[in-house]
């Protein structure tokens, strides 16, 4: 959407609509609605939103250890001495760290790849934070790597690439269990997931 498309709108409003329209999942109509919502906000709330955007762009850096987004490097998780330093969980995106932390069942460290190998989209190993991962895996205190990429074709390809290219022979490499989601239905489950669910069956 160009500013010329928003006929009759003030230039500053047209600019806001245009910028909001760049956000993922925000179409032209949604951008207009959000822009008018922001205009109607009380001044302090609108400035707080603008300040939050400015602040996040100025302060967020990559953690030198896990490559997650953080205000200070190393991040809170990496600098927490209570975390298990021997196990690293490899995830695709920072949002995956949040999802894992919500479970409170993992007390080790993370490594964020910031994507997956996607040959069709021209994303190869060099575009991911793999060099940093392999360097961390060289530390003798690390005894296990949990590859928690998504169970998609590209996630699996990335997991296989990591397993093939990491240099340790004594490292335990695991991935998250595959199977049925809570609330799912056997009838609609694909054969690959069902096969893996059978392979990973447990005593009750």
């Amino acid at each position: 959407m160009t500013q010329e498309n928003i006929s009759g709108a003030a230039p500053s409003l047209a600019r806001l609509v245009q910028e909001l329209n760049r956000l993922p999942g925000i179409g032209p109509k949604s951008a207009q609605r959000l822009a008018y919502y922001i205009i109607r906000l009380p001044d302090d709330e609108a400035y707080a939103l603008a300040d939050a955007v400015t602040s996040v762009k100025q302060n967020i850096v990559f953690c030198e250890e896990c490559q997650n987004l953080t205000d200070a490097s190393p991040c809170q998780i990496c600098s927490d001495p209570r975390r298990d330093q021997t196990i690293i969980c490899v995830v695709e995106d920072p949002l995956d760290v949040l999802a894992m932390e919500r479970t409170r069942s993992f007390r080790g460290l993370y490594h964020v790849l910031h994507g997956v190998i996607s040959p069709i989209n021209g994303i190869g190993p060099d575009q991911l934070r793999l060099k940093e991962l392999f360097s961390r895996l060289d530390r003798p205190e690390v005894t296990e790597m949990v590859v928690a990429t998504n169970p998609t074709l590209e996630g699996e390809a990335t997991a296989m690439y990591i397993r093939r290219h990491q240099g340790r022979t004594d490292l335990r490499i695991t991935h998250l269990a595959r199977g049925l989601p809570v609330g799912g239905s056997l009838e609609y489950t694909d054969e690959t997931t069902l096969t893996k669910a059978f392979q990973g069956r447990q005593e009750i």
């Binding site: 040959p119 069709i120 074709l153 699996e156 390809a157 296989m160 690439y161 093939r164 694909d190 054969e191 690959t192 096969t195």
Partner: peptide, 22 residues
């Protein structure tokens, strides 16, 4: 699913060649 090509997808070379065809 009629055919999942699960053995092909269990191999990195298989996946990369399959995606090339795709």
């Amino acid at each position: 699913v009629l055919q999942s090509f699960s053995e092909l997808k269990g191999d990195l070379d298989g996946i990369s060649k399959g995606l090339y065809l795709a």
